[in-house]
Amino acid sequence: MHDANIQRLLQQRSFTELGARQRARALLDAGSFRELLDPFARLESPWLARQGIVPQADDGVVVAKGLLDGQPAVIIAIEGAFQGGSLGEVGGAKIAGALELAAADNRHGIPTRAVLLLETGGVRLQEANLGLAAIAEIQAAIVELRQYQPVIGLVAGPVGCFGGMSIAAGLCSYLLVTREARLGLNGPQVIEQEAGIDEYDSRDRPFIWSLTGGEQRHASGLVDGYVADDVEQIRGQLLALFAKGKPALERSRRHAWFLERLQGVDTSVQADAAAVRSTYQGEQP
């Protein structure tokens, strides 16, 4: 048993420990990785340096074209280690443009499908309105592309997916998470600041993960797959979701059902993981 555990750990290839570019390369078919607007294109944020912040040559977004199980694909990976994966004008435009190109491919008979590797705190505050506008464009592009092909969002961790990009995640055809992932509109510190530490202690990690962590989101039916932090297993789940084709009805189009469930919540009691799960359980349309 001891040896079996060691063997299992030795064979595991962590996905979350990879950087954005390595993640995209690991998921695409071997040898098919081709980056659009790579770091040597020097398309970095024009706003960060003016505010005394060191920019990154790719603005924290990797757009990789290639093949996924022999099919044309684009993988868009956000680098969580650069500025918390925040999205500004340039990075946001790279994502929106890549999704729009994939939709154009589909209109021309090339069935390009998209995977979003979401590792982001949402809009980059230093680029406020420009980042928000870019996120709106990303959301519109996801809705356009998902008419043709499934758009799959993967939240692997450790940053998680928050803010406007959590709404973008909600628009994806399918969502895949690991245990390390978190998904929520507001991050823990923002909620603590607004609601008070008695209600939401951002330093209480088990509490935070019990409400917004990957396992909880899966048990609540808010995501479609829950996967171990392993490159092969993640790739396998992505392919399985693509094989299902487009969902009959996207999660975001089931808003009426979700609103009805949320209206039944008793806000006078502190929510816990079990209460949230039972809120979201029930016959889904």
Binding site: P39, V54, A57, A81
Partner: peptide, 29 residues
């Protein structure tokens, strides 16, 4: 290209230069 502009880290881009010269530009926090 190696590294990332993350806390305690750096990004290094290396490209062919003019014969005889090693030119380095550093943007640092």
């Amino acid at each position: 290209l190696v590294g990332c502009v993350g806390s305690g880290d750096l990004e290094v881009l290396l490209e062919p230069g003019t014969a005889g010269t090693l030119a380095i530009q550093v943007v640092t926090s």
